[in-house]
Nucleic acid binder design. Structure first.
Lengths: 204, 204
DNA sequence: TTAATAAATAAACATTGTTTAATAAATAAA
DNA sequence: TTTATTTATTAAACAATGTTTATTTATTAA
């Protein structure tokens, strides 16, 4: 009898419901203003019930973080068809920044938030992130091999590019550009992009 | 009689003691693991006493944040003597990263931490940050005017450079490079620097 | 010496994440 | 179907947090 399987399924559904609800509340009230109690109330369970599905709050956040990486990686894979690695790199940059600014909660958990880092090490589960990182790295490597980027150190170039896009995204998301008007930020952002692209790519 | 002045002085000293103690505890236990109660105990006062000197915990953190900007700006000003703006820019980059990695607590509060952003807006006191930003911007401007950087958009270039160094620092500080061995990070970091420097500066 | 002011404290409050012992529900065994 | 057992859920409590309030203590002014 398949009651075992059904229960397993129900457990997964409950986990998903909790994660979904948590994410919704995060978006509404900001990540740090969402309590276990609030999540419990929203799904009409007692706070304690949540602990049958997640070891602690960090695990809920970690689940969302992993979900975010799924989304990002899926976006990256949508570039599979682009043959020219420079074009691919440019598109990936835009895609990355867009993802960051349109999914601030996800992005924050994935690349900025503090508690997460411990969970990542504890679980050795930066796998999700590594997959995305390698996708970028491979593209950079193609650029180098095909003579578009004049630098042999793949990791250094990859880290530079990652740092560049992450840095801008993080400054914006964490309110360090709040003094600038929104449209100015947008303009500057695309200006910075052009600057980077123009100078780092060797025109063959 | 100077009792008014003395009291004012004592109040300042107490504020400073609280800030100094908070910073020390931050360094020892991590920013998020320091409570008002812990600070109070360390200086041998009751928790409530602290509220005679700071409106709330955020104000203590904000004071440290401002102190951090004093330190960073002082470091920047040590480059005043460098005539060539490209050299100056390079030195500033190194100096910035070093500051970030050697003063992670300060840097975190200044450029990454969340609560701070609200205080900054609330107080309109990004002045401290703006001074440092303008110092960078002026140097970038010199580079452009003297033909070392081939791009007319000062703000875009400045933001790109800031994003670049901040991005790398933030990824390291927030543990997103924890899977890489330390020496690899150091190598990659300087490699990224070279990459950036080599390609963005037009050799006259 | 007394009155007014300021500083510091102890105690309490509300909120957090989390644990525990008790209850209700669902399943398996008889 | 009835009973026993396992599982899911809850209510209540715990410890820690930031903060407020009424009270006491210390300091200053009269």
């Amino acid at each position: 009898m398949g009651t075992e399987e059904r229960k397993e399924r129900e457990k997964m559904e409950m986990r998903q419901l909790i994660v979904k609800t948590a994410l919704k509340l995060f978006a509404e009230n900001g990540i740090e203003n969402v309590s276990i109690r609030a999540i419990a109330e929203k799904i009409e369970y007692s706070p304690g019930a949540i602990y049958s599905y997640f070891k602690d709050k960090g695990e809920i956040i970690h689940a969302i973080h992993t979900e975010g990486f799924e989304k990002l990686y899926a976006l990256q894979r949508s570039l599979d068809g682009i043959k020219n690695p420079v074009d691919k790199l440019g598109q990936m940059g835009k895609l990355y920044i867009n993802f960051a600014l349109e999914n601030k909660d996800y992005y924050d958990l994935m690349f900025i938030a503090k508690g997460i880092a411990e969970k990542i090490n504890e679980k050795k589960e930066w796998d999700a992130g590594e997959r995305s990182y390698n996708y970028l790295r491979d593209t950079v490597n193609d650029c180098i091999e095909q003579g578009y980027i004049n630098d042999k150190n793949v990791d250094a170039v990859t880290f530079a590019i990652w740092g560049f896009v992450h840095g801008m995204a993080a400054l914006i998301i964490r309110g360090r550009c709040a003094m600038m008007p929104d449209e100015f930020i947008q303009q500057t952002l695309s200006g910075s992009f052009n600057f980077f692209k123009t100078h780092l790519i060797t025109n063959k």
